[in-house]
Amino acid sequence: MRINPILEKDLKTKLRGWRSTILICCYVILLIGILFLYFASNNIFNPYNTHNFNPRMAMDAYNLIITFQFALLFLAVPAITATSVSSERERQTLDLMLVTKTPVRKIIVGKIMVSLAHTMLLLIASMPVIGVVFFFGGIGFLDIIKLLLFYVLTSFFVASCGVFFSTVFKRNIVAIITTYIFLGLITFGPFILFLVLGLVRERYSYTGFSPVYRDFVSALFPSSVFGFTSFYISGSSYSMYYGYYSPGIFSEVAQEIEQQRMASTGLWKLLHPWLANGLFNVVASISLIFLSARILNPIHRKK
C-alpha cells in the first residue's frame, strides 16, 4: 500500500535540503532560549540560591512553553494549509490532480496530512525541551500525551479550516487572511463571550461564575483556548497544593473553569475542556473536509 501521494511529494520537496533542518533547529533553539531566560530571570542558576526553589516555577515554565507552541500552531498551520489548494490552482496543477482517479476527498486529506506531519515533526523536536520540566516534577507523562493529542486535534481543525478556505478562494492571500480571521473568531470569540457573560453573572449574582460550566460550556466547545485551559492548570498538581499563584487573567479563568467542571456532575464532569474541544475539532474537521471536497469536485463546480 502506498502512502498518500500528496503527502509523499510534499514531504519530499519540503524536507529536501538544509532549509527545513535549519528551521527545526531554530525552533528548538528558540524554545530552549525561552526556557533559559525564564529560569535565569527567576534566579535558578544562582549557586547560592539553595533555599528558595518554588516547584511552581517549573509549572510556569511548562505553561510558558506550551502557550508558545499553541500560539505557533495557530500561526504556522494556516500558513501551510491556506495556500495548499489555491497554490495548486495558481501553478495550474489542480486540474491535473482532479483528472486522476484519486477521489477529491483523498486530495484534501493529503493536503491536511502534510500540515499535520509538519506539526508532528515540530512537536516531537520540542519534546526534549518540554522534558526538562520533568526534572522538577509536577508534570506527568500522561499530561504530555494528552497535550500532544490536543495539539494534533487542534492542528487537524486548523489545517481543515485552511484547506477549506483555500478551496473557496482562488487567490492565496485572500485564503490566508480569511483563515486567520475565521480562526480568530472561532478561537477567541466564544471565550470572550464566556468572559463577558461570566463577569455579568458575577456582577449580578451572589454565586459568582457558578454554574458557568454547565451553562456555557457547549458554547465554548469550538474555542481551542477553552480546550487549552485543561493543560494550563490540570497538569499543575502543585498549583492546588501550594496555593493560589496568578500569572494573569487566563490562569484565573482556567482555574475557574476547572473548578466548575469538578463541581459538575455526570457526563459534564467527565467532559474536560480539552476533550470537549477535541471532539468539536474532529466533527468540524470532518465536516470541512466533506465541504471542501464538494466545492472542489468538478462535477459540482459551476466554473
Binding site: R2, P5, I6, E8, K9, K12, T13, R16, R91, Q92, T93, D95, L96, M97, V99, T100, K101, T102
Partner: peptide
C-alpha cells in the same frame, strides 16, 4: 489521459519523482 494547454509541472521535483507522483495519484 488529459494534457491541457499549459504545462502544470512542479519545478522542485525531479522528472522521475514527477512521474512517481502522478502514478501514485492514478493508484
Amino acid at each position: 489521459g488529459y494534457m491541457p494547454d499549459f504545462f502544470g509541472v512542479y519545478d522542485d521535483l525531479k522528472v522521475s519523482e514527477y512521474m512517481n507522483f502522478y502514478a501514485g495519484l492514478q493508484g
